[in-house]
Design a protein around this nucleic acid. Structure first.
Length: 633
DNA sequence: GTTCGGCCTG
DNA sequence: CAGGCCGAAC
């Protein structure tokens, strides 16, 4: 508790120094200080006249507004609001991991690789098909597999250049299996000759086979759904939905002195890279993506599946659609993985209906399970990376998405989860502990740079070559204001630590330091203003000493002062003002009150002592702020 | 000389 | 909120 002087002493002091007798401030050029002096001058008898219209008239700290009355309070989105059609936060995460290299800016290039690989595979398939039609089916399993193996070698040869060889290997195995099944589903040598009889005799067997396949498909479907649920739980789908609109708004701030978020540019770049590819059906890919990873994943998933089934039913297009649900999602990854769309159509078109259906089902099964494996792998990778980043799991998110950067939608999945609830973090922490993976070298590296904190000063953004913002954006400003709740006097190093997505230079550093200077200025002005008013009320209300003055020297959440501070630093009112900030505000208020009451404000440097007290009250900024980008909309 | 905080002004 | 300016600290 700072130098709070009891009411008795204050009154004695005030009596000894009547307001009208107080000298004007000598603080050089302090206009606002002069305003404060005027309030004590004979000319101005009401301090509130000098301040803005938000100043309380009677009770300085009266609860004139509750937080819910604040104009800045945004209503929570209704639970039943339809999911907007946007790229969901989680998409790039999955998508990114599906790209073997995983480097954010390489999406286009990887698609190129995948596409060329795919085209290569398709060309090979066409050759195969032509060969089969020319009676060269003798390839059979052996020859066909050899061909497939060659393709596999080729595919691996391309993909081994990328980092995640394991994931590539899995995909390659998937491709291999699919091709095997395709070949198996085709008539073999001699089968064409006695095809009729064999079909006759094997009809019962095939029926059983179909039944078995159906069961397997159902299993795969269930497994995929369970895995998807895991994904959604891990990434907090609800938070992705929340504030997406706001996030968009933040991203759409338009020309702001060229301060486009790097993330915005990144997203566009990636999008361009994706859709420039000739064979990619961008719209379909996005649609499928949304169906798999949109805001209400399962609602949309099933709804879209039903709609599509209905649609296809109306069009009369048959085909083994039992796995439609699985394939709704898998379709995306087929494209992302550079897989075998050509094979799919070729298989159906080139074979009889029954063989085509069988192949289609087999393919769906295989791909469905491949998707399931990929999701598992994604989750494993996620927990591993989470492990590396130690105590801030969502930070991993910052470098997982292909177009991570400042894509505010995704950040908002991460941020909202961090700022509003701890359950997800705890859940992931538990998962991390179970994983128990320790990368000693990297841990050491991170710790070396972390100044003792659990997190590195510069997050993965810089480690993974995420493009840094050249300038400061409105989102950075918002974040800085929220940081002010914890740190009134952050050092430039601290700022660099908590703005990992900003490329710091002298100008940017100065600007951010200036921001905090301005924040402090506003803070101290409010403290002085309310302190002066409290002093005035103490003197004028009944002209007598009043007990319980301490209780008025508080900045509870129901007070006008709190409302003003909250409006300034937390305009959207999304962030919960930390209790510590309220305590610091009360200290400052009481210091100002004490200084004014005792007449210390006659000293030109009377505020310096208060500054010195307040600067010692900085508290650590939560690790959540180490995430790049904007914490709240 | 540089950095940073504070004050004043627009 | 930013720019200019000044002074203190290193």
């Amino acid at each position: 508790m700072p130098t709070w002087e009891g009411p008795d002493r204050q009154v004695a002091s005030s009596r000894a120094r009547p307001p009208t007798a107080r000298p004007l401030h000598t603080t050089p050029g302090a206009a606002r200080d002069r305003a404060g002096d005027l309030f004590c001058s004979p000319v101005m008898d009401s301090p509130t006249d000098l301040f803005d219209d938000s100043a309380p008239q009677m009770q300085t700290f009266s609860p004139t507004h509750s937080s819910t009355d604040l104009p800045g309070v945004h209503p929570q989105p209704s639970a039943g609001r339809p999911a907007p059609a946007f790229r969901p936060s989680g998409f790039p995460l999955i998508h990114h991991l599906l790209q073997p290299g995983g480097a954010p800016r390489r999406i286009g290039g990887q698609l190129n690789t995948n596409l060329s690989t795919r085209r290569h595979l398709e060309d090979r398939n066409l050759e195969e098909d032509r060969g089969e039609r020319n009676g060269q089916v003798e390839l059979g399993m052996g020859g066909g597999e050899e061909g497939v193996m060659k393709e596999e070698d080729s595919l691996l040869g391309v993909k081994k250049r990328h980092s995640d060889a394991t994931l590539v290997a899995e995909w390659s195995q998937d491709i291999l299996k699919v091709k095997r099944m395709k070949l198996e589903s085709r008539p073999r040598d001699g089968e064409a000759e006695e095809g009729g009889r064999r079909r006759e005799g094997g009809r019962e067997g095939k029926r059983k086979e179909r039944e078995e396949l159906k069961e397997q498909l159902e299993e795969a479907r269930e497994r995929l759904q369970a895995l998807q649920e895991k994904v959604w739980r891990a990434f907090g789908e609800n938070h992705m939905a929340e504030g997406e609109e706001k996030t968009r708004r933040c991203g759409n701030r338009g020309g702001d002195g060229g301060e486009r978020d790097a993330g915005m540019m990144e997203e566009e770049d990636v999008t361009e890279g994706m859709y420039d590819e000739e064979d990619i059906d961008g719209g379909e890919m996005e649609k499928e993506t949304f169906s798999l990873l949109s805001v209400s994943p399962f609602d949309n998933f099933h709804k879209q599946r039903e709609e599509r089934q209905k649609d296809r039913g109306e069009r009369g297009s048959g085909g083994g659609l039992h796995l439609e649900g699985v394939m709704e999602g898998a379709g995306l990854w087929l494209d992302c993985g550079g897989l075998v769309r050509g094979d799919w159509h070729g298989g159906i078109e080139d074979e009889g209906e029954e063989g085509g259906q069988k192949f289609a089902q087999a393919l769906k099964l295989e791909l469905g399970s491949a998707v399931a494996r990929v999701i598992d792998r994604v989750l494993r990778l996620y927990t591993e990376m989470t492990d590396v980043t130690s105590s801030s799991p969502p930070a991993a998110i910052s470098f997982l998405p292909a177009d991570a950067g400042n894509d505010e939608g995704r950040e908002k999945g991460a941020w909202m989860g961090l700022l509003t609830r701890g359950t997800d973090e705890e859940k992931i922490r538990g998962k991390v502990e179970k994983t128990g993976r320790q990368d000693g070298e990297r841990e050491q590296h991170l710790l070396k740079r972390s100044n003792g904190s659990a997190l590195p000063p510069r997050t993965e953004a810089s480690d993974l070559a995420m493009p840094l913002a050249e300038g400061l954006s409105p989102c950075h400003l918002k974040k800085a204001k929220l940081m002010f709740f914890y740190a009134r006097y952050p050092s430039s190093n601290t700022l660099k630590t908590y703005f990992p997505d900003v490329k710091f230079n002298r100008c940017v550093t100065s600007q951010m330091i200036k921001w905090f200077s301005n924040f402090r200025e506003f803070f101290y002005i409010q403290m002085e203003r309310f302190a002066r008013q409290a002093v005035r009320e103490a003197l004028t209300r009944d002209g007598a000493p009043r007990l319980g003055r301490e209780s008025q020297m508080r900045v509870g959440r129901d007070t006008e002062l709190y409302r003003i501070l909250n409006m300034h630093y937390n305009k959207s009112n999304v962030y919960q003002v930390p209790e510590r900030f309220i305590e610091v505000s009360e200290v400052a208020l009481r210091e100002f009150y004490s200084a004014i009451w005792t007449g210390r404000d006659t000293d030109p440097c009377w505020k310096k002592g208060i500054y010195k007290i307040i600067c010692k009250l900085d508290s650590p900024v939560p690790d959540a702020f180490r995430l790049p980008g904007c914490p709240v909309g």
